[in-house]
Design a protein around this nucleic acid. Structure first.
Lengths: 341, 341
DNA sequence: GCACAAAATGAATACGTTTGCAAAACAGGC
DNA sequence: GCCTGTTTTGCAAACGTATTCATTTTGTGC
């Protein structure tokens, strides 16, 4: 099977007996064209199997109708679901997604360079580490950017994330009210703002009941590292009696390790609270008590914000923080008499 | 912040005091350019913040260096991992991935149209339903396509998948040798070749030990539907004593339902075998006996094949079927005396 | 310094569209 | 049929790059 040379609007024009402009106008929604020539053109187009070349179109319209989606890993189910939703949303608006996976330790600046070269109309970054300088560079080039689920100390770029601080605060006070004395924290990436905010909220939540954080170990949002972190936690003495984990993905690792490796009962021996509320967390084997992030809403806000910035000439950065919902399930001991809010 | 007009090679040329061609040559790896002018150009480029416009480049080179990745859902972890690997692989070859998510019941032909319009250099379809006519259309237009993990009754398009039949066959004979009498099958999408091949192998595997398939229910590769299918299975009488499930994603749903809803023990009351070997399957809570698909190898083969077809003028379709590995864990009763191979 | 090959350069063209502009076709009212 | 106002149409100029070809510059061995 040999490659056919692509058929152009000129060839269609010739066959239909009209000018090339007429053909072009047939494929532009708002252009002015008579019904008669439209029929002629569409007939010829179909006969030749013509499809407008979107590269050429992009060149002249200076818009690729493409969004760069950058993320660092897909092994936490939170992200695949977010990607799927974002994809559907953008497709509905006739935008395409260009996927960039950049490992946490990868050459982020290099990827950034390629993104900018690829002439995308906008950038949606999911939990990618964006240094302030890189963020500035984006803004300099004038490409709209929105950061999802991660923030950066630079006002100039739009960000949507959920209320990590209060999620952490709730976890801290809920565990305190459940009568726990030694609540520990399994962090995500130390460099991530999300993990830091959750941690801070957690510490403050405990403090509001006169407690301090018993220990902190680093799970780096990774399943295996979270297991290892759990082992370290329980090699300490005294052992924690509760754990707040920076993501459900890691929380499951913690649960598995607690139950099947350390032989502990949850929540009788240890309480566990996660963050995200991924589908796994609701499975009967886990029934994880957690803090729900409103994924749908986050994606909706982020895409809407990005599309808005693309359409408008002047880009003005906005920050949106979405509320979080405690999901009471079976892995954290419930406070006996008091109500929590 | 206002949008800056993009800086072009011509402006760089002017600043550097050279021709536009010289600038272009500086950014083409193999072009002939003196060290002296290269320095001048790069200096000017950096000063102006110039980046070659890949749209214009694509137009002239007739290659977008972009691959369409089409899939229907990301909620089975098999796919996110595959996507991540594919992405890394293509990025390393300086190709970009354009993501197309098309729901199982979505307008596939419409998406296909957009893919073709977007001038991708190749298409990688993961488990998407491609009708023969659509496949032919692809081949007609001359865009290289490779189907991953799904095949279609059309020789003209390249396909890589694993040995579904023998995976199913092994499951059937392993369950038979384990002394099960009433082994049932939870299918994936009925229209999918993978599910059908696994089913066929399973039936033949049972038959090789003189057994027949006790029942078939449809899970459509969906978690909830798999739960429902399990309920149906156990509403029947007599109940099955073993289940082969067309994917691990569904197998976990089956396990959850069996244990926590029907109060059955696995493998004492019922044995369960899955397919894929996703990370979840190895978690201590499940320890799912399953048939491993060599994801890494599948992606490697598929990407290599696609890149090869892109580079070569004439496209010749190839089929690659990769071997599958039984993973013996804890959800299926082991045969007592005999060895299986 | 010279002859010659090799390397580097610039002018010009092409890629396949969209779109402003002016000419042409059309419709309606007399 | 003529004048006016509105569509419809074709021409031609972009968009920003890669690349061919002819020309100029550089390098090498004497």
């Amino acid at each position: 099977m040999k490659r056919k040379p692509a058929v152009t609007s000129r060839e269609v024009a010739e066959l239909a007996g009209v000018s090339q402009s007429a053909v072009s106008r047939c494929f532009s929604p708002k252009a002015s064209i008579s019904e008669k020539t439209r029929r002629k053109v569409l007939k010829a187009a179909k006969e030749l199997g013509y499809r407008p070349n979107s590269i050429a179109r992009s060149l002249i319209t200076r818009s690729s109708r493409t969004i760069a989606l950058v993320l660092s890993t897909l092994d936490n189910m939170f992200y695949p679901l977010a990607v799927e939703k974002a994809s559907l949303r953008f497709q509905a608006e006739d935008y395409h997604l260009l996927l960039f996976v950049v490992p946490e330790d990868g050459d982020f600046a290099g990827v950034m360079d390629r993104i900018l070269q690829s002439q995308v109309d906008g950038i949606l970054m999911m939990s990618a580490l964006l240094t302030s300088s890189l963020a500035e560079e984006c803004v300099e080039t004038g490409v709209p950017v929105v950061l999802l689920n991660r923030n950066v100390a630079f006002e100039g770029v739009s960000q949507v994330y959920s209320d990590n601080y209060h999620g952490g605060f709730w976890a801290g006070s809920y565990l305190a009210m459940g009568g726990h004395q030694r609540a520990a924290f399994v962090s995500g990436l130390e460099s991530s703002s999300t993990s830091r905010r959750r941690h801070q909220g957690f510490v403050d939540g405990l403090a509001s009941h006169g407690l301090t954080c018993h220990a902190v170990v680093h799970g780096n949002y990774d399943f295996e590292q979270a297991r290892q972190a759990t082992r370290e936690l329980f090699a300490m003495s005294p052992r924690p009696d509760a754990i707040f984990v920076a993501s459900d993905h890691m929380a499951v690792a913690v649960l598995e390790t607690l139950r099947h490796e350390l032989g502990l009962r949850v929540p009788e021996d240890v309480s566990v609270i996660g963050f995200d509320d991924t589908p796994v967390s609701a499975w009967p084997s886990y029934r994880l008590t957690t803090v729900r992030q409103p994924v749908d809403q986050m994606i909706e806000e982020a895409t809407t914000l990005l599309l808005k910035q693309i359409r408008e000439e002047a880009v003005v950065a906005e920050h949106r923080v979405l509320p979080v919902t405690p999901i009471l399930r079976a892995t954290a001991r419930r406070p006996v008499a008091a109500s929590v809010d």
